[in-house]
């Protein structure tokens, strides 16, 4: 469904992503793990057209999307939940969710999606009229995921949903990520928390200094001695 070929990202002289190639099949959850600075966020940002890649191609559902205008990415069916959540702090929770549905016009369907999001995250319903900037970090992460779902995406790109959250909150959020994936969502999951990511995915790629150094089925990676030593702290 998503085919990334030879993707190359640089910031001035810094080579953040060096010609990586990987793919995600329909319905799959794929983890992209690696240390801080490995180039994971840059990869997602380049796919979502937040930044321009220096080289390489991205195809989605057979269509080349690596040159389209940024605001059309979501119309192709790709929703990014960005690093640091990126909620609109001075919009209410409800308005943030409506922003997620910006590309949809039919009010009836938006109401249905809203109900679906509130069923996943009842906390958001309680906070509906509150400004997003007043939410806790975990609630903001819920909002960022809920907002992405409001666009009715074909694929979710998640950038470190566990970052900076208390373990109990991480657990809640990953329950939803797994439930959404189980309902058929294709997902590309970035995490520094490698164990969590590999436990929540079917396949995984390991990224190091801008390159993919290892890939395989997630259970196999969890057992791999190099992965255990470098990323699982064993």
């Amino acid at each position: 469904m998503l085919e990334v070929t030879g993707l190359h990202v640089a910031y001035g002289g810094i080579q953040a992503v060096r010609s990586i190639t990987f793919h995600v099949k329909e319905g799959e959850t794929v983890a992209l793990i690696g240390a801080n600075g490995a180039g994971k966020s840059s990869t997602l940002k380049a796919i979502a057209r937040v930044i321009d890649a220096v080289g390489g191609d991205v195809h989605f559902c057979g269509e080349k999307i690596s040159r389209i205008v940024p605001h059309d990415i979501i119309r192709k069916g790709i929703a990014l939940v960005p690093e640091g959540r990126g909620v609109f702090p001075r919009l209410s929770v409800l308005e943030n969710l409506h922003m997620g549905a910006f590309i949809h016009d039919a009010a009836v369907d938006v109401e249905k999606d809203l109900k679906m999001v509130y069923d996943y995250f009842p906390r958001l319903r309680e906070r509906e009229s509150q400004l997003a900037g007043t939410l806790s970090g975990g609630e903001q992460q819920m909002l960022a995921i809920g907002r992405a779902l409001m666009s009715r995406p074909k694929m979710l790109l998640l950038d470190e949903p566990s970052m900076g959250l208390a373990p109990i909150m991480v657990q809640k959020i990953f329950e939803v990520i797994r439930a959404v994936a189980a309902a058929g969502m294709t997902t590309l999951l970035i995490e520094q928390n490698a164990r969590l990511a590999l436990q929540s995915s079917q396949r995984g790629y390991v990224m190091e200094s801008g390159e993919i150094t290892l890939h395989g089925d997630s259970p196999a990676l969890l057992d791999d001695s190099k992965v255990r030593a470098a990323y699982l702290g064993e």
């Binding site: 940024p70 059309d72 119309r75 990126g86 702090p89 001075r90 919009l91 308005e95 922003m99 910006f102």
Partner: peptide
């Protein structure tokens, strides 16, 4: 109006939501 307020707060994210900045 909502798109304008969102853009004022974070244009890159508003663009991710499909807003033509």
């Amino acid at each position: 109006g909502m798109a304008m307020r969102a853009t004022a707060q974070n244009p890159a994210i508003a663009s991710l939501m499909g807003v033509n900045i």
